[in-house]
């Protein structure tokens, strides 16, 4: 069963990437989140328009503070919180590794001539585009405390942007017709034709004076911090999944799919 191998190889990649990511985030992105949370209790809750952002209480814009207010479990600051962040990082990397392996497996089936590591790096570049860059241009990284459009609509748009960019990459890489570039461009444009959901008011309207200025600065820092985090994530993912694929998956897949450059069957 190649499935078992995919799981184990995915876990190995996830552990490696998760450890590096937790370290990188701890150094430069998490401190910004913690600094922003220190201002959350200064927020003046806006009436009416924003209240729809928190239909069931737990997803209010005040996030951490809100979670405490409704007495939902939340990890204690310090070691416990970092441990859960590590666990979430490993699971996130695991999910991405499985998708990377699946794409690489299909590329092998289609007779790619790339070796495992370059193929993994190309796939990781597409992953960065689809899962980070393309959605993030429309919906910027947010620090805790910022107001935004309704959560469900932002999640929906994020999904649309990611799926569109992934399909655009698949078109560009997988189709033969010269029209594929046009199709890829149309797919990339789609989420921006639809338009990312934004509120008309200032996302930091709930804060005043110095707090607002500090948070605005933290927000800008966070956009850059998350950009570097995503680049390190996908670089690590490319290298780790390339090595894991070469060692644990490629021989089994080649045995059935055939050698490089040859399509074993018409498709």
């Amino acid at each position: 069963m190649i499935f078992q191998r995919l799981i184990w190889a995915g876990l190995a990649v996830a552990l490696a990437v998760g450890i590096v990511q937790t370290g990188v985030q701890h150094l430069q992105a998490v401190p910004i989140i913690l600094a922003a949370e220190a201002y959350e209790d200064q927020k003046i809750e806006a009436p009416a328009t924003f209240s729809e952002a928190a239909p069931s209480g737990h997803e209010g814009h005040a996030g951490h503070a809100m979670a405490e207010a409704t007495e939902e479990w939340a990890p204690a600051d310090g070691f416990e919180r970092t441990a859960w962040t590590f666990a979430a990082n490993v699971l996130h990397a695991f999910s991405m590794a499985l998708l990377v392996f699946a794409v690489m497996g299909v590329a092998l089936w289609r007779g790619t001539t790339l070796r495992a590591l370059p193929l993994a790096l190309v796939t990781a570049a597409a992953g960065w585009l689809a899962f980070h860059f393309w959605p993030s241009i429309g919906l910027h990284a947010e620090i805790p405390g910022m107001d935004a459009a309704r959560l469900g609509s932002r999640q929906g748009w994020w999904t649309l942007a990611a799926v569109s960019a992934a399909l655009a990459c698949a078109c560009a890489a997988g189709l033969k017709s010269p029209l594929r570039w046009l199709l890829a461009a149309a797919l990339l444009a789609l989420p921006y034709v639809v338009g990312a959901p934004h509120i008309t008011a200032d996302p930091l309207a709930g804060f005043q004076g110095e707090a607002q200025a500090v948070l605005r600065d933290l927000g800008t820092q966070f956009v850059w911090a998350t950009t570097w985090v995503s680049l390190t994530f996908w670089l690590c993912m490319g290298v780790a999944s390339g090595l894991a694929f070469q060692r644990w998956l490629q021989p089994a897949l080649r045995a059935t799919f055939g050698e490089a450059g040859k399509l074993p069957q018409t498709a």
């Binding site: 985030q25 992105a29 996130h92 993030s136 990284a141 966070f222």
Partner: peptide, 14 residues
């Protein structure tokens, strides 16, 4: 709450 920081850092709507 468990994945809170990772959601923010990976730029998911949180």
């Amino acid at each position: 709450n468990a994945a809170h920081d990772v959601r923010h850092v990976t730029v998911k709507p949180c």
